[in-house]
Design a protein around this nucleic acid. Structure first.
Lengths: 342, 342
DNA sequence: CTGAAAGCGCTTACAG
DNA sequence: CTGAAAGCGCTTACAG
């Protein structure tokens, strides 16, 4: 047991000073090629690795980013929302490609999420991925930014937001699906999902929906809107509620695919056929969307691009450069669930 | 700009020494209650957080675990295998509940994965989640263990493995599905998936399959087995190959749900009905399994439990306690894809 | 129960 | 291009 190998051991073996070892390993140009080679040989021989704790402590940056998933405390523990899982994958890849490690955390388990990572110097910045109540987290967001923590958020781009965020164009997306539904000859389109500033993304999709309706000379009716959060169960419940109201409708735009899938089950339970009796569309294009029966019309959000922009924006902030909130295009994906038979 | 708040600032404010601040914050019993309160007040006032880099450097442990996903370089970049995504979720939760942070990484991006995390002191131990060639990584695994790195692996429990692993009972799982298929009256069951020691989990499922066949007095036929890795495309291809061979078969056991889903598409393309013409079963019970048409019979692996055992085993290793490889039960889930009409 | 002191393993001016 | 030295912010014997 020779103990831990340090840069001093390398220095000794290579016959140079420890400072030079450090320089060589950091890729400093101030090192002679021959010296660098000798150091590298010593590193290989002793299987040396730089201690990241020491280096972070001294250099004041960690080379890691933190990803915080905050969700409503009521959320089902067993599964992460598939859309966020997809974002997680893309963020992980984008960070890795840029040479950063990624720390992952769920807000539920941390009482003090707004500070835990950046303040404790485990990460250089944080990415917020939330599917909880925005209003409830806004204050913490403000505090974060005030403290000088570098952070970017996935979500609606809001006029009064304290931070930099990246989101998709929910309004256009909502408008496009709704218009598509209308073009299929639907007369009464319902909306399943929260439509309040607590859930800005859903609210924007609702705005797009309303806009499409007025484009067609119609008005959004409150009886045709039912609150729902992004889970299957909630979608099922919302559809049950809508059905119980006894109002007529021939199409449904669900604020997320999960809601749409839950709604689909409820419709089936009531003997209603999709799309014949009710045309249906969701939002997100999660993997199951194309597998449900009938395949679900939805709006695709480009998670790969989103992850890259999120990471690049955060990296810019970390470098002290300005970063701007960005709105990504939303793309309508038409499948069988919304295609009315002619 | 007062600069960074350190434990010295807290000490000053609370009128004690820095050592005492450190003790109080670490929860040492050697601190007077009144003193502890004063320190806490100072901490709150200055919004102080312990610098984890300094603390890890000194205390020689980091409070974080690393999760390494290693996959075949050929694997599709765009999506993480849904089964591993589910494991990822459960591991993240299990770590958080035990007070550890989780660092995530993909092997592809790191040339030196076997050392990067533990050796560079960013994590106290690592969890390996692989869907690549086992034989190709075995040496690195050996090296890891030889170096004294704490690590646990998800996968088949092998007689000669150098590490501690946690896996599900693939043999029983494979045997159960196959027996089920046979009980449905199927006479010729094909197997789609690699059946070699490169992919020990698939191989065990194949062993279970063979065993079920011999239980029924049949023999596994090499013409009825086609290699496939765990992707839809590969499953599609494998089924095309099987079909092209022109051998008769009335059931298929796919080594994973993804393979099964790909196979399903191929069957549909050839006008073959599931389950009427060909009964079909997969393995994993990924979320889409219940949504495909018809719903897929499969074998459920308890990812929640798996994540917890993986983390607990790693934590035991870190504490210097012994940890044993574990085999989790596999549970047959019968759905419509395997139910032959009577 | 508390304090003074050493030291974890690096990075980075500073001086040549 | 290289070395000696200071110091990042903690934890933890050691001595009271």
């Amino acid at each position: 047991m020779k103990g831990k190998v340090t840069s001093f051991d390398i220095a000794h073996l290579a016959g140079v000073s420890q400072s030079t070892v450090s320089r060589a390993l950091r890729g400093s140009p101030l090192v002679n090629e021959e010296t660098r080679r000798r150091i590298q040989a010593a590193v290989d021989e002793l299987n040396y690795k730089v201690d990241k704790n020491a280096s972070s402590l001294r250099a004041r940056h960690t080379g890691t980013l933190a990803l915080l998933l905050f969700e409503d405390p009521t959320a089902d523990e067993s599964h992460i929302n598939p859309f966020f899982l997809s974002m997680l994958g893309s963020i992980t890849r984008a960070s890795a490609q840029r040479g950063y490690d990624l720390l992952i955390s769920f807000q539920q388990f941390s009482r003090d999420w707004h500070a835990d990572y950046a303040d404790s110097k485990k990460a250089d910045g944080i990415i917020l991925l939330g599917y909880g109540d925005y209003l409830a987290t806004r204050d913490k967001l403000q505090k974060l930014v005030d403290q000088g923590t570098r952070c970017v958020r996935w979500g609606a781009v809001l006029p009064d937001q304290p931070d930099v965020s990246v989101g998709c164009d929910n309004i256009s997306g909502g408008r496009e699906v709704t218009t598509h539904l209308l073009e299929q000859g639907c007369q009464r389109v319902a909306f399943l999902g929260d439509a309040s500033s607590h859930y800005p993304e859903f609210f924007d999709r609702y705005r797009g929906y309303s806009r499409a309706l007025s484009d067609a000379g119609m008005d959004a009716e409150s009886l045709l809107q039912v609150n729902a959060e992004s889970t299957e169960q909630s979608g099922y419940q919302a559809m049950e509620t809508l059905l119980a109201r006894g109002v007529a409708f021939d199409a449904v735009f669900a604020a997320s695919d999960l809601i749409a899938i839950g709604a689909m089950r409820s419709l089936a339970d009531h003997g209603l056929k999709v799309p014949d009796d009710v045309a249906l569309a969701g939002f997100d294009d999660i993997p199951v969307a194309s597998f449900v029966n009938p395949p679900l019309t939805t709006v695709l959000q480009d998670t790969k691009l989103a992850g890259e922009i999120l990471v690049d924006n955060l990296l810019a902030l970390i470098r002290g450069e300005p970063a701007e909130s960005a709105m990504l295009p939303a793309k309508l994906i038409v499948r069988k669930s919304s295609l009315k038979p002619r």
